[in-house]
Design a protein around this nucleic acid. Structure first.
Length: 730
DNA sequence: GACCACTGGTTTTTT
DNA sequence: ACCAGTGGTC
């Protein structure tokens, strides 16, 4: 055990060994937060203060939950599976599976992800003949979710105008539809669990007695309902309730826009009479100058709980500031600089290019691509959100729960089987009238709408029958084959990647069955492999596939970078209106969140930080003239070193040649597979009769189909068919 | 049902 | 600039 506590600094040690009581740990960036959290659990267990089954640890992401689990099992020879470690949503799923009857749900209830939810709302509006221009599904979803996240049902929702009255009616209708279909959305998982526990006293007492220690990570990100949920489980107010150990950093609260309530930290301190607020202020990550800049920035925010990071590492290098003529110029500077760093031996994966919004990645990607620097962009479509995967899952969902209309609507005519819009409307009407599911309507509809509907019903029934005794992976495979999905994508031009993904889904099923992870296992015992796998697919949309940790530059938004650290960080686009973002700058609350975001960005860097901005930037197809971000003014000048922009023309074609074996990113086309005639190569400067001078940056196809992508100085990016375009080396 | 032209909307994102 | 979604035509 002394091993356990070795090398903790005094506040860390104090936090870890706090006697059982409610505690708030203010953990600054890079202060060893996760370590404290896991060591706390290990300490509680190894000193016999709690049994594994008495521990509940809550995180926001699956990644964080997994990391905690991994670290704990490395620390202690303890049965990690007896502990409940997971995300709010994962834990709620587990509770609802175990007590679905009491919660009023079918055993195989399905989970709607945000996309499913929107589709469900859309379908509802169509059913009710509501104009989806007046009530956009996106906005309605937000309205419903916001209410649920406050713990407010339609029946209690406040109505202050006619428009909202209608929205609340739709909210009630949506609740009824979900109930009828046996599906729950993300917010519902939490609200339903909350209601279950607050209404069912024996159940509540059971869990209140069971969990002696509740530990919450990233507490600043909790929303109103999550905090209520924690209060309920911790038996707030009772002497013998669980002890709540909350770890968070109000300065890193950057999710207000999705309902996070920083105020929960203050409320927690007050309502739980926390008299032990421990501050972790020693930073083990960044050099002094970087930290000093971060402190200087965040000082401008009001109402902080208060914290000042320090380090005993040296001041380190000054922060480099670059001012570009244009976004292109800025990108070129960044890429040149990264190449130099790489040459000097900095691993590519230790260099991060951060930006405020995703759209900014494009210009960086272009430059990286032409320079042949391998890079990886985080964010974007995730595995379980891909259409082919969602299609396959929809078939599986229909097998598990035929009432799932969202799944039905998704695949009733995919692959196309002659059940067009009209037949589907027919089914909708019939289902609406009979107050039944689409599937039921389809099953009882004989003759009229033709044989195709009947064939679909038979297909699903056949699938259900034939897969009933198959192990999960074979079940998935069978469905992919028999549903016609594989055949469909085989016939599609760009279908190979989708086919690969379907194979990957079968793989995922294999892994899922093999994996012995705690939470999933319990859920599996409750509901069986299929339902558990489907829940897993919804709750864990899938970490961005292969290539993780590959030797590539890391491109991501500042939001996505939270929790990560890099030797070198480039923060680009520091312009008024972009960062801080114009939509946020109007009110103090918004600006302060932007500032916290800036604080998060700066504290990602260990050794070197670049801040850059551009005088002009292409945004939404138009050139914007920019002013440097006000955040520059908040950093003491002596920490900064301006790098004078070298006088370069605003546009200069990238140099050709000299970079053999250019590594490519995920976005690259099959350039090296293309046969380029006339001695043309990627990276070469070329001349075109109409478009002028440009650089070949990509190629695809061969022979008569060969096409190249050329970045022209004046005409911009173009794809040209080599058969017609007369390109000559320039 | 496939293809194409037009439109609107573009901060951040997990579950 | 660029994407997704839609509505029209063949």
């Amino acid at each position: 055990m002394s091993d356990l506590l070795a090398n903790l600094n005094p506040p860390q040690l104090a936090a870890v060994t706090l006697p059982p009581q409610h505690a708030l740990i203010l953990a600054g960036a890079g202060s060893g937060k996760t370590r404290v959290l896991t060591t706390r659990i290990a300490w509680l267990l190894s000193t016999g203060q709690v049994a594994p089954s008495g521990v509940l640890a809550v995180t926001f992401t699956n990644k964080a939950a997994k990391e905690m689990q991994a670290r704990l099992s490395a620390m202690l020879p303890v049965n990690v599976r007896a502990m409940w470690i997971g995300t709010f949503h994962g834990l709620c799923n587990r509770l609802l599976r175990a007590h679905h009857k009491e919660a009023g749900l079918p055993a195989l209830f399905q989970i709607l992800d945000s996309g499913d939810q929107q589709a469900a709302v859309k379908r509802m509006l169509k059913n009710l003949n509501v104009d989806d221009e007046k009530f956009p599904p996106r906005e309605l979803c937000h309205f419903f979710n916001a209410h649920k996240e406050q713990g407010v049902r339609a029946a209690q929702a406040e109505v202050y105008d006619d428009y909202t009255r209608r929205r609340v009616e739709l909210y009630a209708e949506y609740e009824a539809q979900c109930q009828r279909e046996g599906v729950v959305d993300f917010a519902e998982l939490l609200l339903r669990t909350y209601e279950l526990l607050s209404r069912n006293e024996p159940l509540r007492q059971h869990y209140q007695r069971r969990f002696r220690h509740i530990l919450v990570d990233e507490f600043q990100d909790t929303n109103v309902l999550q905090y209520k949920w924690l209060k309920l489980l911790a038996d707030h107010g009772a002497e013998d309730g669980a002890k709540l150990f909350a770890v968070g950093d109000d300065d890193q609260s950057i999710y207000r826009f999705r309902g996070a309530e920083v105020g929960n930290m203050r409320d927690f301190e007050r309502e739980f009479r926390v008299d032990s607020v421990i501050r972790l202020e020693q930073n083990y990550r960044s050099h002094g100058n970087i930290l000093e800049a971060a402190n200087a920035i965040i000082k401008h925010n009001r109402g902080r709980l208060g914290k000042n990071l320090w380090t005993d590492a040296g001041a380190g290098e000054p922060i480099r500031v670059f001012e570009g003529f244009s976004d292109l110029d800025e990108a070129r500077f960044i890429v040149d600089e990264t190449r130099e760093l790489i040459r000097d031996g900095v691993p590519r994966s230790q260099i991060a290019l951060l930006y405020r919004s995703n759209a900014q990645s494009r210009v960086l990607e272009h430059q990286l691509f032409t320079a042949g620097v391998p890079y990886r962009v985080y964010g974007g479509l995730r595995f379980f959100e891909r259409q082919e995967i969602k299609h396959a899952l929809a078939y599986l969902r229909l097998i598990a729960n035929p009432d799932d209309d969202t799944a039905f609507a998704r695949v009733v005519n995919f692959p196309a089987r002659g059940i067009g819009a009209r037949s589907q409307e027919h089914l909708q009407a019939a289902a609406h009238q009979a107050n039944s599911s689409l599937y039921n309507a389809a099953a009882s509809l004989s003759g009229k709408a033709g044989a195709s509907v009947g064939a679909f019903v038979r297909l699903i029934e056949e699938l259900r029958r034939d897969t009933a005794n198959l192990p999960l992976p074979e079940m998935v495979e069978h469905v992919v084959e028999v549903s016609g999905l594989r055949r469909h994508y085989l016939g599609e031009k760009e279908g190979q990647e989708r086919l690969d993904n379907l194979d990957e889904l079968i793989n995922a099923a294999v892994n899922f069955v093999q994996e012995e992870s705690g939470g999933d296992l319990a859920a599996r015992e409750e509901a069986g492999d299929l339902a558990a796998f489907l829940a897993h697919a919804s709750l864990e949309a899938g970490e961005h596939q292969a290539g993780e940790g590959e030797e590539a530059l890391q491109l991501m938004t500042v939001h996505a970078a939270k929790g990560l650290e890099f030797d070198v960080v480039f923060l680009s686009g520091l312009e008024q209106g972009l960062f801080p973002h114009e939509n946020a700058a109007a009110e103090r609350e918004g600006l302060e969140e932007e500032r916290r975001l800036m604080y998060v960005a700066v504290t990602r860097a260990r050794q070197r930080l670049y801040l850059s901005w551009a005088q002009t930037r292409m945004l939404h197809g138009q050139t914007r003239y920019c002013v440097a971000s006000s955040f520059f003014d908040e950093i003491p000048g002596e920490l900064l070193r301006r790098i004078n922009p070298v006088a370069k023309p605003v546009y200069e074609a990238p140099r050709a040649g000299g970079r053999g074996g250019a590594a490519r990113s995920s976005s690259a086309s099959a350039a090296d597979a293309a046969g380029l005639p006339n001695g043309l190569r990627i990276g070469m400067n070329v001349q075109h009769a109409k478009f002028g001078l440009g650089v070949i940056i990509a190629a695809e196809g061969r022979g008569a189909d060969a096409r190249v992508q050329v970045n022209f100085m004046d005409a911009g990016m173009k794809w040209l068919a080599l058969e017609y375009a007369r390109l000559t080396p320039a």
